[in-house]
Nucleic acid binder design. Sequence first.
DNA 1: CTGCAAAGTTGCAGTGAGTGCAGGATTTTA
DNA 2: TAAAATCCTGCACTCACTGCAACTTTGCAG
Lengths: 203, 203
Amino acid sequence: MTTHAAEGLRDRKKRQTRTALGHAAVRLVAERGLDHVTVEDISAAADVSPRTFFNYFAGKEEAVLGPDPEAGPRLRARVLAQPAGLSTAAAVRAALLEEVAAELADDRELWLLRMRVVQQHPVLLAKLFSGGEALERDLVAGIAERVGLPADDTYPLLLAAAAGAAFRVAVTRWSSTAAPLHDLLAETLDLLAAGLAEPPRRS
Amino acid sequence: MTTHAAEGLRDRKKRQTRTALGHAAVRLVAERGLDHVTVEDISAAADVSPRTFFNYFAGKEEAVLGPDPEAGPRLRARVLAQPAGLSTAAAVRAALLEEVAAELADDRELWLLRMRVVQQHPVLLAKLFSGGEALERDLVAGIAERVGLPADDTYPLLLAAAAGAAFRVAVTRWSSTAAPLHDLLAETLDLLAAGLAEPPRRS
DNA sequence: CTGCAAAGTTGCAGTGAGTGCAGGATTTTA
DNA sequence: TAAAATCCTGCACTCACTGCAACTTTGCAG
Protein backbone atom coordinates (compact mmCIF):
# COMPACT_ATOMS: atom_id res chain seq x y z
CA MET A 1 0.00 0.00 0.00
CA THR A 2 1.72 3.03 1.42
CA THR A 3 3.72 4.66 -1.33
CA HIS A 4 6.62 6.87 -0.26
CA ALA A 5 8.00 8.04 -3.57
CA ALA A 6 9.42 11.54 -3.57
CA GLU A 7 10.28 12.07 0.06
CA GLY A 8 13.06 14.14 1.52
CA LEU A 9 15.69 12.77 3.81
CA ARG A 10 13.89 14.30 6.74
CA ASP A 11 10.56 12.57 6.18
CA ARG A 12 12.23 9.28 5.39
CA LYS A 13 14.07 9.36 8.69
CA LYS A 14 10.88 10.20 10.54
CA ARG A 15 9.14 7.24 8.99
CA GLN A 16 12.09 5.05 9.88
CA THR A 17 12.15 5.98 13.54
CA ARG A 18 8.38 5.59 13.75
CA THR A 19 8.42 2.06 12.38
CA ALA A 20 11.55 1.23 14.34
CA LEU A 21 9.77 2.24 17.54
CA GLY A 22 6.63 0.38 16.54
CA HIS A 23 8.45 -2.81 15.67
CA ALA A 24 10.54 -2.69 18.81
CA ALA A 25 7.41 -2.20 20.89
CA VAL A 26 5.60 -5.18 19.39
CA ARG A 27 8.63 -7.43 19.61
CA LEU A 28 9.48 -6.58 23.19
CA VAL A 29 5.91 -6.83 24.43
CA ALA A 30 5.52 -10.18 22.67
CA GLU A 31 8.61 -11.41 24.50
CA ARG A 32 8.11 -10.02 27.98
CA GLY A 33 4.51 -8.93 28.29
CA LEU A 34 3.14 -5.41 28.41
CA ASP A 35 3.95 -4.68 32.02
CA HIS A 36 7.54 -5.79 31.76
CA VAL A 37 8.43 -3.39 28.99
CA THR A 38 9.16 0.27 29.71
CA VAL A 39 9.22 3.17 27.33
CA GLU A 40 12.92 3.35 28.04
CA ASP A 41 13.36 -0.23 26.80
CA ILE A 42 11.56 0.49 23.56
CA SER A 43 13.47 3.70 22.99
CA ALA A 44 16.77 1.96 23.62
CA ALA A 45 15.88 -0.80 21.16
CA ALA A 46 15.06 1.80 18.54
CA ASP A 47 18.15 3.81 19.42
CA VAL A 48 16.49 7.07 20.31
CA SER A 49 15.99 8.91 23.56
CA PRO A 50 12.93 8.21 25.69
CA ARG A 51 11.91 11.80 25.19
CA THR A 52 11.80 11.26 21.44
CA PHE A 53 9.48 8.31 21.90
CA PHE A 54 6.78 10.67 23.07
CA ASN A 55 7.23 12.82 19.99
CA TYR A 56 5.83 9.88 18.06
CA PHE A 57 3.45 8.01 20.36
CA ALA A 58 1.33 8.91 23.34
CA GLY A 59 2.32 5.75 25.19
CA LYS A 60 3.29 2.11 25.00
CA GLU A 61 -0.11 0.94 23.84
CA GLU A 62 -0.19 3.29 20.91
CA ALA A 63 3.28 2.21 19.83
CA VAL A 64 2.24 -1.44 19.90
CA LEU A 65 -0.90 -0.84 17.86
CA GLY A 66 1.00 1.40 15.50
CA PRO A 67 -1.98 3.44 14.41
CA ASP A 68 -1.68 4.58 10.81
CA PRO A 69 -2.64 8.27 10.74
CA GLU A 70 -3.72 7.87 7.13
CA ALA A 71 -5.98 4.89 7.75
CA GLY A 72 -9.01 6.98 8.66
CA PRO A 73 -9.14 9.14 5.56
CA ARG A 74 -8.26 6.12 3.43
CA LEU A 75 -11.18 4.12 4.80
CA ARG A 76 -13.51 7.03 4.31
CA ALA A 77 -12.37 7.32 0.71
CA ARG A 78 -12.87 3.61 0.16
CA VAL A 79 -16.46 3.82 1.36
CA LEU A 80 -17.20 6.67 -1.00
CA ALA A 81 -15.46 4.92 -3.89
CA GLN A 82 -17.72 1.87 -3.84
CA PRO A 83 -20.12 1.54 -6.78
CA ALA A 84 -23.41 3.36 -6.31
CA GLY A 85 -25.33 0.13 -6.79
CA LEU A 86 -24.26 -1.19 -3.42
CA SER A 87 -26.26 -0.59 -0.29
CA THR A 88 -24.54 1.47 2.35
CA ALA A 89 -23.89 -1.52 4.55
CA ALA A 90 -22.49 -3.44 1.59
CA ALA A 91 -20.24 -0.52 0.75
CA VAL A 92 -18.83 -0.48 4.27
CA ARG A 93 -18.33 -4.20 4.09
CA ALA A 94 -16.42 -3.95 0.82
CA ALA A 95 -14.36 -1.04 2.06
CA LEU A 96 -13.34 -2.90 5.20
CA LEU A 97 -12.37 -6.01 3.30
CA GLU A 98 -10.31 -3.96 0.87
CA GLU A 99 -8.51 -2.17 3.66
CA VAL A 100 -7.74 -5.38 5.51
CA ALA A 101 -6.41 -7.04 2.38
CA ALA A 102 -4.20 -4.09 1.55
CA GLU A 103 -2.90 -3.67 5.07
CA LEU A 104 -2.18 -7.35 5.45
CA ALA A 105 -0.40 -7.52 2.12
CA ASP A 106 2.04 -4.94 3.42
CA ASP A 107 3.54 -6.97 6.22
CA ARG A 108 1.61 -9.95 7.36
CA GLU A 109 3.99 -11.23 10.04
CA LEU A 110 3.95 -7.98 11.95
CA TRP A 111 0.17 -7.97 12.03
CA LEU A 112 -0.03 -11.55 13.22
CA LEU A 113 2.45 -10.91 15.98
CA ARG A 114 0.62 -7.72 16.87
CA MET A 115 -2.71 -9.49 17.13
CA ARG A 116 -1.22 -12.23 19.22
CA VAL A 117 -0.02 -9.54 21.57
CA VAL A 118 -3.41 -7.85 21.59
CA GLN A 119 -5.04 -11.17 22.38
CA GLN A 120 -3.05 -11.38 25.60
CA HIS A 121 -3.73 -7.80 26.65
CA PRO A 122 -7.42 -6.87 26.58
CA VAL A 123 -6.45 -3.31 27.41
CA LEU A 124 -5.10 -3.07 23.91
CA LEU A 125 -8.18 -4.66 22.38
CA ALA A 126 -10.29 -1.84 23.70
CA LYS A 127 -8.07 0.70 21.97
CA LEU A 128 -7.82 -1.28 18.76
CA PHE A 129 -10.87 -0.02 16.93
CA SER A 130 -13.40 1.72 19.08
CA GLY A 131 -10.43 3.20 20.87
CA GLY A 132 -9.27 4.59 17.60
CA GLU A 133 -11.74 7.42 17.93
CA ALA A 134 -10.20 9.20 14.97
CA LEU A 135 -10.62 6.20 12.70
CA GLU A 136 -14.22 5.64 13.71
CA ARG A 137 -15.00 9.32 13.24
CA ASP A 138 -13.66 9.20 9.70
CA LEU A 139 -15.71 6.12 8.98
CA VAL A 140 -18.83 7.81 10.35
CA ALA A 141 -18.13 10.79 8.13
CA GLY A 142 -17.76 8.61 5.05
CA ILE A 143 -20.98 6.75 5.74
CA ALA A 144 -22.92 9.91 6.49
CA GLU A 145 -21.64 11.50 3.31
CA ARG A 146 -22.57 8.50 1.19
CA VAL A 147 -26.06 8.11 2.58
CA GLY A 148 -26.81 11.80 2.81
CA LEU A 149 -27.46 12.05 6.52
CA PRO A 150 -25.90 14.29 9.17
CA ALA A 151 -22.88 12.81 10.94
CA ASP A 152 -24.71 12.76 14.27
CA ASP A 153 -27.59 10.65 13.02
CA THR A 154 -28.11 7.23 14.53
CA TYR A 155 -27.57 5.32 11.31
CA PRO A 156 -24.01 6.34 10.46
CA LEU A 157 -22.96 6.18 14.10
CA LEU A 158 -24.39 2.70 14.53
CA LEU A 159 -23.14 1.30 11.25
CA ALA A 160 -19.61 2.46 12.01
CA ALA A 161 -19.72 1.20 15.58
CA ALA A 162 -21.16 -2.15 14.53
CA ALA A 163 -18.56 -2.53 11.80
CA GLY A 164 -15.92 -1.83 14.41
CA ALA A 165 -17.42 -4.47 16.66
CA ALA A 166 -17.40 -6.99 13.83
CA PHE A 167 -13.81 -6.14 13.10
CA ARG A 168 -12.83 -6.69 16.71
CA VAL A 169 -14.56 -10.05 16.81
CA ALA A 170 -12.98 -11.17 13.55
CA VAL A 171 -9.55 -10.19 14.76
CA THR A 172 -10.10 -11.93 18.05
CA ARG A 173 -10.99 -15.16 16.33
CA TRP A 174 -8.20 -14.72 13.80
CA SER A 175 -5.48 -14.66 16.41
CA SER A 176 -6.64 -18.02 17.73
CA THR A 177 -7.89 -19.99 14.74
CA ALA A 178 -5.41 -19.66 11.87
CA ALA A 179 -8.20 -19.03 9.36
CA PRO A 180 -7.62 -16.13 6.93
CA LEU A 181 -8.69 -12.83 8.44
CA HIS A 182 -10.46 -11.90 5.23
CA ASP A 183 -12.80 -14.88 5.48
CA LEU A 184 -13.48 -14.42 9.16
CA LEU A 185 -14.30 -10.76 8.68
CA ALA A 186 -16.58 -11.50 5.73
CA GLU A 187 -18.41 -14.14 7.71
CA THR A 188 -18.82 -11.86 10.69
CA LEU A 189 -20.11 -8.98 8.60
CA ASP A 190 -22.62 -11.31 6.95
CA LEU A 191 -23.92 -12.35 10.33
CA LEU A 192 -24.31 -8.69 11.19
CA ALA A 193 -26.13 -7.95 7.94
CA ALA A 194 -28.49 -10.80 8.69
CA GLY A 195 -29.67 -8.85 11.70
CA LEU A 196 -27.93 -11.20 14.08
CA ALA A 197 -30.52 -13.82 13.34
CA GLU A 198 -30.29 -17.13 15.12
CA PRO A 199 -27.08 -18.88 14.07
CA PRO A 200 -27.04 -22.33 12.46
CA ARG A 201 -27.08 -24.95 15.20
CA ARG A 202 -23.94 -27.03 15.04
CA SER A 203 -23.49 -30.55 16.31
CA MET B 1 -32.44 -1.84 41.95
CA THR B 2 -29.50 -2.81 44.06
CA THR B 3 -30.79 -4.44 47.19
CA HIS B 4 -28.49 -4.35 50.18
CA ALA B 5 -30.58 -5.99 52.81
CA ALA B 6 -28.66 -8.12 55.27
CA GLU B 7 -25.25 -6.53 55.09
CA GLY B 8 -22.69 -6.21 57.80
CA LEU B 9 -21.24 -2.93 58.90
CA ARG B 10 -18.12 -3.70 56.94
CA ASP B 11 -19.79 -4.18 53.59
CA ARG B 12 -21.98 -1.17 54.09
CA LYS B 13 -18.95 1.01 54.69
CA LYS B 14 -17.22 -0.41 51.66
CA ARG B 15 -20.19 0.44 49.51
CA GLN B 16 -20.27 3.91 51.01
CA THR B 17 -16.64 4.70 50.26
CA ARG B 18 -17.00 3.30 46.77
CA THR B 19 -19.95 5.48 45.91
CA ALA B 20 -18.41 8.45 47.71
CA LEU B 21 -15.31 8.11 45.54
CA GLY B 22 -17.39 7.62 42.42
CA HIS B 23 -19.58 10.63 43.07
CA ALA B 24 -16.64 12.83 43.94
CA ALA B 25 -14.89 11.77 40.76
CA VAL B 26 -17.85 12.58 38.53
CA ARG B 27 -18.51 15.89 40.23
CA LEU B 28 -14.92 17.10 40.16
CA VAL B 29 -14.31 16.04 36.57
CA ALA B 30 -17.54 17.74 35.51
CA GLU B 31 -16.32 20.93 37.14
CA ARG B 32 -12.66 21.04 36.14
CA GLY B 33 -12.17 18.54 33.32
CA LEU B 34 -10.43 15.19 33.44
CA ASP B 35 -6.85 16.48 33.31
CA HIS B 36 -7.34 18.99 36.07
CA VAL B 37 -8.42 16.46 38.65
CA THR B 38 -5.91 14.29 40.48
CA VAL B 39 -6.50 11.11 42.38
CA GLU B 40 -5.49 13.05 45.44
CA ASP B 41 -8.30 15.54 44.85
CA ILE B 42 -10.86 12.79 44.55
CA SER B 43 -9.59 10.99 47.62
CA ALA B 44 -9.66 14.19 49.64
CA ALA B 45 -13.23 14.91 48.55
CA ALA B 46 -14.26 11.43 49.63
CA ASP B 47 -12.26 11.72 52.82
CA VAL B 48 -9.99 8.73 52.37
CA SER B 49 -6.30 8.38 51.66
CA PRO B 50 -5.06 8.33 48.07
CA ARG B 51 -3.78 4.85 48.72
CA THR B 52 -7.27 3.67 49.53
CA PHE B 53 -8.53 5.04 46.25
CA PHE B 54 -6.55 2.39 44.43
CA ASN B 55 -8.09 -0.32 46.56
CA TYR B 56 -11.35 0.49 44.82
CA PHE B 57 -10.50 1.75 41.35
CA ALA B 58 -7.65 1.25 38.94
CA GLY B 59 -7.62 4.91 38.03
CA LYS B 60 -9.54 8.13 37.53
CA GLU B 61 -11.41 6.88 34.48
CA GLU B 62 -12.73 3.86 36.24
CA ALA B 63 -13.91 5.94 39.17
CA VAL B 64 -15.81 8.28 36.87
CA LEU B 65 -17.55 5.45 35.06
CA GLY B 66 -18.24 3.77 38.36
CA PRO B 67 -18.40 0.25 37.01
CA ASP B 68 -20.80 -1.82 39.03
CA PRO B 69 -19.07 -5.14 39.74
CA GLU B 70 -22.46 -6.83 39.90
CA ALA B 71 -23.66 -5.48 36.57
CA GLY B 72 -22.05 -8.24 34.54
CA PRO B 73 -23.58 -11.21 36.34
CA ARG B 74 -26.88 -9.34 36.59
CA LEU B 75 -27.00 -8.77 32.85
CA ARG B 76 -26.11 -12.37 32.21
CA ALA B 77 -28.93 -13.47 34.50
CA ARG B 78 -31.37 -11.16 32.76
CA VAL B 79 -30.54 -12.70 29.39
CA LEU B 80 -31.13 -16.18 30.71
CA ALA B 81 -34.34 -15.13 32.45
CA GLN B 82 -36.07 -13.99 29.25
CA PRO B 83 -38.96 -16.17 28.06
CA ALA B 84 -37.88 -19.06 25.86
CA GLY B 85 -40.14 -17.83 23.08
CA LEU B 86 -37.87 -14.91 22.32
CA SER B 87 -35.06 -15.14 19.80
CA THR B 88 -31.59 -14.70 21.24
CA ALA B 89 -31.24 -11.23 19.83
CA ALA B 90 -34.62 -10.27 21.24
CA ALA B 91 -33.62 -11.62 24.63
CA VAL B 92 -30.48 -9.50 24.66
CA ARG B 93 -32.54 -6.52 23.61
CA ALA B 94 -35.02 -7.05 26.44
CA ALA B 95 -32.27 -7.66 28.98
CA LEU B 96 -30.47 -4.45 28.02
CA LEU B 97 -33.62 -2.37 28.22
CA GLU B 98 -34.45 -3.82 31.62
CA GLU B 99 -30.99 -3.09 32.92
CA VAL B 100 -31.01 0.46 31.67
CA ALA B 101 -34.43 1.13 33.16
CA ALA B 102 -33.41 -0.26 36.53
CA GLU B 103 -30.08 1.53 36.62
CA LEU B 104 -31.62 4.80 35.61
CA ALA B 105 -34.36 4.49 38.18
CA ASP B 106 -31.70 4.31 40.85
CA ASP B 107 -30.21 7.73 40.37
CA ARG B 108 -30.95 9.47 37.17
CA GLU B 109 -29.11 12.72 37.81
CA LEU B 110 -25.81 10.99 38.44
CA TRP B 111 -26.07 9.13 35.15
CA LEU B 112 -26.92 12.25 33.22
CA LEU B 113 -23.97 14.09 34.70
CA ARG B 114 -21.75 11.11 34.06
CA MET B 115 -22.76 10.93 30.42
CA ARG B 116 -22.19 14.61 29.96
CA VAL B 117 -18.70 14.08 31.29
CA VAL B 118 -18.15 11.10 29.01
CA GLN B 119 -19.30 13.15 26.07
CA GLN B 120 -16.47 15.62 26.66
CA HIS B 121 -13.81 12.95 27.13
CA PRO B 122 -13.77 10.39 24.33
CA VAL B 123 -11.14 8.45 26.23
CA LEU B 124 -13.89 7.50 28.63
CA LEU B 125 -16.30 6.56 25.87
CA ALA B 126 -13.98 3.83 24.73
CA LYS B 127 -13.99 2.32 28.18
CA LEU B 128 -17.71 2.70 28.69
CA PHE B 129 -18.97 -0.55 27.30
CA SER B 130 -16.67 -2.41 24.98
CA GLY B 131 -13.88 -1.27 27.26
CA GLY B 132 -15.65 -2.90 30.16
CA GLU B 133 -14.13 -6.22 29.24
CA ALA B 134 -15.57 -7.92 32.28
CA LEU B 135 -19.14 -6.83 31.50
CA GLU B 136 -18.87 -7.87 27.89
CA ARG B 137 -17.43 -11.23 28.87
CA ASP B 138 -20.38 -11.90 31.16
CA LEU B 139 -22.79 -10.93 28.41
CA VAL B 140 -21.02 -13.26 26.00
CA ALA B 141 -21.29 -16.04 28.55
CA GLY B 142 -25.00 -15.46 29.00
CA ILE B 143 -25.67 -15.46 25.28
CA ALA B 144 -23.56 -18.54 24.68
CA GLU B 145 -25.32 -20.35 27.47
CA ARG B 146 -28.75 -19.44 26.17
CA VAL B 147 -28.07 -20.40 22.59
CA GLY B 148 -26.02 -23.47 23.37
CA LEU B 149 -22.79 -22.48 21.70
CA PRO B 150 -19.24 -22.27 23.04
CA ALA B 151 -18.24 -18.88 24.40
CA ASP B 152 -15.59 -18.44 21.72
CA ASP B 153 -18.00 -18.87 18.83
CA THR B 154 -18.55 -15.96 16.48
CA TYR B 155 -22.23 -15.54 17.25
CA PRO B 156 -22.11 -14.80 20.98
CA LEU B 157 -19.02 -12.66 20.57
CA LEU B 158 -20.58 -10.61 17.80
CA LEU B 159 -23.99 -10.24 19.39
CA ALA B 160 -22.42 -8.97 22.61
CA ALA B 161 -20.07 -6.63 20.81
CA ALA B 162 -22.82 -5.29 18.58
CA ALA B 163 -25.11 -4.76 21.55
CA GLY B 164 -22.30 -2.85 23.21
CA ALA B 165 -21.89 -0.73 20.11
CA ALA B 166 -25.60 0.03 20.04
CA PHE B 167 -25.47 0.97 23.70
CA ARG B 168 -22.59 3.34 23.08
CA VAL B 169 -24.41 4.99 20.21
CA ALA B 170 -27.62 5.35 22.18
CA VAL B 171 -25.78 6.91 25.09
CA THR B 172 -23.92 9.25 22.79
CA ARG B 173 -27.15 10.51 21.30
CA TRP B 174 -28.82 10.62 24.70
CA SER B 175 -26.33 13.06 26.14
CA SER B 176 -27.08 15.50 23.35
CA THR B 177 -30.77 15.12 22.52
CA ALA B 178 -32.80 15.01 25.72
CA ALA B 179 -34.84 12.05 24.45
CA PRO B 180 -35.36 9.20 26.94
CA LEU B 181 -32.46 6.77 26.87
CA HIS B 182 -34.86 3.85 26.81
CA ASP B 183 -36.40 4.96 23.54
CA LEU B 184 -33.08 5.76 21.91
CA LEU B 185 -31.67 2.39 22.87
CA ALA B 186 -34.74 0.55 21.62
CA GLU B 187 -34.60 2.38 18.32
CA THR B 188 -30.91 1.67 17.90
CA LEU B 189 -31.31 -2.01 18.68
CA ASP B 190 -34.15 -2.24 16.16
CA LEU B 191 -31.92 -0.77 13.50
CA LEU B 192 -29.34 -3.38 14.35
CA ALA B 193 -31.87 -6.21 14.22
CA ALA B 194 -32.92 -4.98 10.79
CA GLY B 195 -29.44 -5.82 9.57
CA LEU B 196 -28.50 -2.18 9.29
CA ALA B 197 -30.72 -1.88 6.27
CA GLU B 198 -30.92 1.45 4.53
CA PRO B 199 -32.47 3.99 6.88
CA PRO B 200 -35.61 5.95 6.00
CA ARG B 201 -34.62 8.98 3.96
CA ARG B 202 -35.61 12.12 5.82
CA SER B 203 -36.31 15.49 4.28
C1' DC C 1 29.46 26.54 -0.56
C1' DT C 2 27.76 29.23 2.99
C1' DG C 3 24.57 30.96 6.08
C1' DC C 4 19.90 31.12 7.86
C1' DA C 5 15.46 29.16 8.98
C1' DA C 6 12.75 25.17 10.04
C1' DA C 7 12.27 20.93 12.17
C1' DG C 8 13.91 17.09 15.02
C1' DT C 9 16.40 15.31 19.07
C1' DT C 10 17.88 15.30 23.58
C1' DG C 11 18.53 16.20 28.64
C1' DC C 12 16.53 18.02 32.69
C1' DA C 13 13.29 18.90 36.01
C1' DG C 14 8.92 18.18 37.75
C1' DT C 15 4.03 16.29 38.47
C1' DG C 16 1.27 12.53 38.93
C1' DA C 17 -0.15 7.54 38.34
C1' DG C 18 0.14 3.16 40.26
C1' DT C 19 2.15 -0.78 43.34
C1' DG C 20 4.24 -3.51 47.25
C1' DC C 21 4.84 -3.68 51.93
C1' DA C 22 4.14 -3.38 56.76
C1' DG C 23 1.98 -1.50 60.83
C1' DG C 24 -2.25 -0.04 62.94
C1' DA C 25 -7.30 0.09 63.40
C1' DT C 26 -11.84 -2.07 63.01
C1' DT C 27 -15.11 -5.61 62.31
C1' DT C 28 -16.29 -10.47 62.48
C1' DT C 29 -16.30 -14.78 64.47
C1' DA C 30 -15.51 -18.10 67.88
C1' DT D 1 -13.28 -11.01 75.17
C1' DA D 2 -9.61 -12.90 72.46
C1' DA D 3 -8.23 -14.48 67.90
C1' DA D 4 -8.75 -13.99 62.99
C1' DA D 5 -9.95 -11.71 59.02
C1' DT D 6 -10.26 -7.52 56.68
C1' DC D 7 -9.57 -2.85 55.73
C1' DC D 8 -7.08 1.68 55.93
C1' DT D 9 -3.03 4.22 55.76
C1' DG D 10 1.71 6.04 55.19
C1' DC D 11 6.05 5.28 53.00
C1' DA D 12 9.07 4.37 49.43
C1' DC D 13 9.70 3.40 44.86
C1' DT D 14 9.22 2.88 39.67
C1' DC D 15 7.47 4.53 35.65
C1' DA D 16 4.48 7.55 32.54
C1' DC D 17 4.24 11.78 30.62
C1' DT D 18 5.01 16.99 29.76
C1' DG D 19 7.18 21.72 29.23
C1' DC D 20 11.25 24.01 28.39
C1' DA D 21 15.63 25.16 26.64
C1' DA D 22 19.75 23.93 24.38
C1' DC D 23 21.73 21.52 20.54
C1' DT D 24 21.97 19.08 15.98
C1' DT D 25 20.44 18.04 11.50
C1' DT D 26 18.11 19.06 7.21
C1' DG D 27 16.18 22.19 3.69
C1' DC D 28 16.72 26.16 0.97
C1' DA D 29 18.18 30.07 -0.83
C1' DG D 30 21.69 33.45 -2.11
